[in-house]
Amino acid sequence: MAVVARSVVVGVDAGGTASKAVVVDETGAVLGRGSAGPGNPAAGGPAAARAIGSALRAALGPAPATVTSGVVGVAGASALADPAIAAAFAAEWEALGLRCPMRIAGDAVTAFAAGGDWASGAVLIAGTGAVAALVEGFEITRVADGLGWLLGDEGSGMWLGLRAVRLAARRWRAPLARRVAAHAGAATADDLVYWAQALPPFGALAPVVCELADAGDPDASAITTEAARRLVATLDELEAPGAPVVLAGGLLVADTPVRRGVLARLAARGATVGTAHDPALGAARLALRSTAQATTNAAFDTAFRGSAHRPGPRRSQ
Rank of each mutant, 00 (worst) to 15 (best):
1 M>I: 15
3 V>R: 15
5 A>R: 14
6 R>V: 14
6 R>A: 13
6 R>P: 09
7 S>Q: 15
8 V>W: 07
9 V>M: 10
11 G>T: 13
11 G>Q: 12
14 A>V: 09
16 G>I: 01
16 G>N: 06
17 T>Q: 13
18 A>I: 09
20 K>P: 10
20 K>Q: 15
22 V>A: 14
22 V>L: 13
23 V>R: 11
25 D>F: 11
26 E>H: 14
26 E>M: 14
26 E>W: 13
28 G>C: 12
28 G>S: 12
32 G>S: 10
34 G>P: 07
41 P>D: 02
42 A>L: 13
42 A>C: 14
44 G>S: 04
44 G>E: 06
46 P>W: 00
50 R>E: 08
54 S>N: 06
55 A>E: 06
57 R>C: 07
58 A>V: 08
59 A>N: 09
62 P>M: 13
62 P>Q: 12
63 A>C: 09
65 A>E: 09
67 V>E: 08
71 V>F: 13
72 V>W: 09
73 G>C: 10
73 G>M: 10
75 A>D: 06
77 A>Q: 10
78 S>M: 12
79 A>E: 04
79 A>L: 05
80 L>T: 07
80 L>Q: 03
82 D>Y: 00
84 A>N: 06
89 F>C: 03
89 F>G: 02
93 W>N: 03
95 A>I: 06
97 G>E: 07
99 R>P: 03
100 C>T: 07
100 C>N: 08
100 C>S: 06
103 R>F: 15
105 A>D: 12
105 A>Y: 12
105 A>P: 14
106 G>Q: 10
107 D>A: 14
111 A>C: 13
117 D>Q: 04
118 W>K: 03
119 A>Q: 14
125 I>G: 12
127 G>D: 06
127 G>F: 09
129 G>F: 11
130 A>Q: 05
131 V>S: 09
132 A>R: 02
132 A>E: 06
139 E>P: 13
141 T>D: 15
142 R>G: 13
145 D>R: 02
146 G>V: 15
149 W>E: 02
150 L>S: 05
151 L>D: 08
151 L>C: 09
153 D>S: 08
155 G>W: 02
159 W>I: 05
165 V>L: 04
167 L>P: 06
173 R>D: 13
175 P>S: 02
176 L>F: 03
176 L>Y: 02
176 L>W: 02
178 R>M: 01
180 V>E: 00
181 A>I: 00
187 A>S: 05
189 A>C: 01
189 A>P: 03
191 D>V: 05
202 F>T: 04
206 A>G: 07
207 P>E: 03
209 V>E: 00
209 V>L: 01
209 V>A: 01
210 C>V: 04
212 L>G: 01
215 A>K: 10
216 G>F: 08
218 P>G: 00
219 D>S: 02
225 T>A: 06
228 A>M: 05
229 R>L: 04
229 R>D: 07
229 R>V: 08
242 G>R: 09
244 P>D: 05
245 V>W: 01
251 L>Q: 03
252 L>G: 03
255 D>M: 05
256 T>L: 00
256 T>A: 00
263 L>S: 04
269 R>A: 04
274 G>M: 04
275 T>M: 11
275 T>I: 14
277 H>T: 12
279 P>D: 15
280 A>H: 11
283 A>I: 10
284 A>P: 13
285 R>H: 15
286 L>W: 15
286 L>Y: 15
287 A>N: 11
288 L>A: 11
292 A>K: 10
298 A>P: 07
299 A>I: 11
305 R>P: 14
307 S>C: 14
310 R>Y: 12
310 R>P: 10
314 R>L: 08
